[in-house]
Design a protein around this nucleic acid. Structure first.
Lengths: 338, 338
DNA sequence: TGCTGGCACTCGCACGCGCAGAGTGCCAGG
DNA sequence: CCTGGCACTCTGCGCGTGCGAGTGCCAGCA
């Protein structure tokens, strides 16, 4: 167990390193933080912290930098979430209030997050699986061709063109539309399958094939998790990463383009609050030198999607966590209103 | 006017520089290209080319590199478009054929372009203004709230929520839907305003306000050019840019995030064929060290949107132009089929 | 007139060196 | 258990040097 002072030393190291981006030595520490002890004592503490794996020195006779483990301890025990100031909160709200539709909300959120955290922002579109159906619309494109439009409570719209096995009359179409909506409107996606199960039986024999086809397309759309989209922004902030560019930045850019990777990354974080994954805690190797700060957001009490930022492990965790949390909160509000 | 051989020398310089990324000297030139003359002669030619501003030397006693003007001449006069090979074309087609909807087509196109050209790919979504209306759908969300869904012939879907000045009955809604569609279905966006102008007059006085509101929202959606979206990919390829990273890459990333900038960039290119903008020909300063190769694509004979790549001025122009043209062609085919 | 080989010249770059500065570990004393 | 002192170890930086690539120019030749 580490003594209280040693924890303070670790905290000071993290803070200084985050600020200066340079390895921090014992002397500088005692000067900037009033620890009440001499550099020599701090050196002993640092040696102990290094033994425990919380800090490391890039090379002999350089200062120390925190390890992933050190950051982890810092985040868990040593630092709270720094709340946004009132003006900041107002600015967030104002900026998001201008959004006209879902795409715009997401786009603005990404910009905003990237701007306040000065890092790469990732915002997942409100997920289909957890939301409810607002409306299902069926349009006849051709005698045997129907367009299915699904509108969710978060304002998201998905459309699919369905090729029917047989021509389908407008009357039948209207019938199906009405029955479908009366059953599934305002129901959760997960409930839909059982709700429409017996729907084909209500139709003439000749129409049943088409109805089944439409229904299965609907169900596919509902569960199609890999259709989950996300938007990223602020990649230019990656240039503030470090000095050893190409090697650091490249895998990160590659990982960011793999939406699957990002979705998985966000999905893994199951905490109700802000989740932080530091360095090697990220499964994807390209992100081993980054930290991901994410949180769920949603229109009601429940989270329908995630958002977060990707930045260097050397980041301002309290500030970033505060920003992420605040933005998520306001996005949730916006979604609830619309 | 430059002699034939001097043009050949310029061509050789461009080709070598693109290949090696290093300033090319007179000796290396005569070795790699059979120009039939000695290095000394080539040196004289190079001096002439430099006087004319086609090439430059980074510092005295280094080889020459092409200037923007040199690339321009190369593209205009010295190099054709290198067509894709048959296997490459098949690969493109196969890859694009798997797409399930418009988003998927665009996403696949971006990946594909980025992969073949090894540069940053930009694909504009099929533009609203030039396409035609396939269907307009109206859904009642609440008594005085209507959702407007616009479906275009390219498969694009736009939706807007309209707050009505007065409650609007389901019968009126169905009426409006029917009238609207009979007038605008399969018409070009530009024709829509005049087609719906007198529509409110067909309704009861109490509904006219709502009808007007819905119509003006529809018109807004149609003309809302800034809603034009685009998708970019392959940003990781920026890391192959050069050695002096942060300075070069940062403004490019920033420019890429400014969709407005990119849209303007693509919009400026009005050529029917492949357009190349080299270095300082790009209005945006962040892109002064890049070249943009773009081309229009579309489902019919007419271009409905643009796509292209952004890369270093030192790029393989013939190959890139060939790839861009080929991809655009196949995307057009896919859109026409669906 | 235009091409060629030869030659002197100019730089940029990589290398090696030495020095200063920062930071450490250890130890003896309070 | 803390502190001041001391010897030690690195890294980064400035500097001078040598090398090599590449050039420009010139005189000779077809």
């Amino acid at each position: 167990m580490l003594s209280e002072r040693r924890l303070q030393v670790l905290r000071a190291i993290v803070q200084d390193y985050v600020g200066t981006e340079e390895p921090v030595g014992s002397k500088a520490l005692t000067e900037r933080h009033s620890l009440g002890v001499s550099p020599a004592t701090v050196r002993n503490d640092m040696a102990a912290l290094e033994d425990e794996g919380y800090i490391a020195q890039p090379h002999t006779s350089a200062g120390r930098i925190p390890t992933d483990k050190g950051y982890r301890l810092f985040v868990d025990k040593l630092a709270g979430v720094k709340p946004m100031t009132a003006p900041e909160r107002r600015a967030i709200q104002n900026f998001l209030d201008g959004a006209v539709d879902l795409d715009d909300v997401v786009a603005r959120t990404v910009r905003l997050l990237a701007q306040i955290t000065r890092q790469v922002a990732v915002v997942q579109y409100p997920s289909l699986t957890r939301s409810t159906v607002r409306h299902v619309e069926l349009l006849s494109l051709a005698p045997a061709r129907v367009m299915l439009v699904l509108i969710t409570d978060t304002g998201r719209v998905e459309q699919r063109v369905v090729d029917c096995p047989a021509p389908f009359g407008d009357a039948s179409l209207a019938d199906l539309r009405a029955r479908l909506n009366s059953r599934v409107a305002n129901r959760r996606f997960t409930d839909v399958p059982s709700l429409v199960e017996d729907l084909p039986e209500a139709f003439e024999h000749e129409d049943r094939g088409t109805v089944s086809t439409v229904l299965s397309t609907l169900l596919e759309t509902l569960v199609e998790e890999n259709e989950e989209r996300l938007m990223i922004g602020g990649t230019a902030n990656l240039t503030r990463f470090g000095h050893d560019f190409p090697l650091t930045i490249r895998p990160v850019l590659e990982a960011l383009e793999e939406q699957v990777v990002l979705l998985k990354l966000l999905g893994e974080a199951q905490d109700p609050g802000v989740t932080v994954r530091i360095g090697h805690e990220n499964a994807h190797v390209g992100l081993n030198s980054t930290s991901v700060v994410s949180v769920g957001y949603g229109s009601g009490g429940e989270a329908v999607a995630k958002l977060g930022v990707v930045g260097p492990t050397r980041m301002d965790y309290p500030g970033t966590m505060g920003a992420v949390r605040a933005v998520a909160r306001y996005v949730g509000q916006i979604l609830a209103e619309s």
